[in-house]
Amino acid sequence: MVHPSDIVIWIEQLHKIYKMGETEVHALRGVSLAVKHGEIVAIMGPSGSGKSTLMNILGCLDQPTWGQYTLDGEDVSQMSEDALAAVRNRRVGFVFQSFNLLPRTTALDNVLLPLVYAGVAPRERRRRAVAMLEAVGLGDRIHHMPNELSGGQQQRVAIARALVNEPAIIMADEPTGNLDSQSGKEVMEILQRLNRERGITVVLVTHDLRIGHHAQRVLHLFDGKLRREEMVEAPIQAVDTVLEAEEEPLP
């Protein structure tokens, strides 16, 4: 068995019920799972399976109706809204399908956004944001606006933003969904590399099995329940060649 301190996500009998007018939608029906530090886990399932709901709860954007959720040793299932905001700020990094970068805002300013809400001093913010942009291979694009960047580059800015406050987990929701296959590979490569070199835990939500198989473990969700847990013997390794000539080690 794994030691409790190795576990970053621990959920037990998670239920989520939405009220839609008169009817109740039982989106999650008792999900239990554990994710270890340094793991890449994929959550897969068809639409309506509850994977978005699970992802929202894991990312502390939403709270379970019942059940317990311990993130990085802290019980977050009954927290106040502001306390949850603080947890998201410190422990969770988000990567969205549609990037969600602020328009008319430079890559640098986008990346340092979490540090603003963390109350980090401006000079330190800038230093850390620049370092993070360099880590995702965009050291020469820090003053570009999102509309001046390609889709893959925008997603890399988003990854830098997710990582800048050194969170315990990265929640990546269809991170390659809006990208062509080449850019998608780049993004997966970066996530895998950050996982390998920095031991970052990644929770990947996708409906694409080929993306899912970049993870070490795939959890199949169906009708609000975990149906199957698949251990991936040899996760697909997005090839390093996709990053043009950038072989410098991460800081």
Binding site: L61, E81, A85, A86, F94, N100, L102, P114, Y117
Partner: peptide, 16 residues
Amino acid sequence: TREIGLRKAVGARRQD
């Protein structure tokens, strides 16, 4: 709206 959502996701509290 999306900007507000994102700010909240990265840790902005209500009062922010």
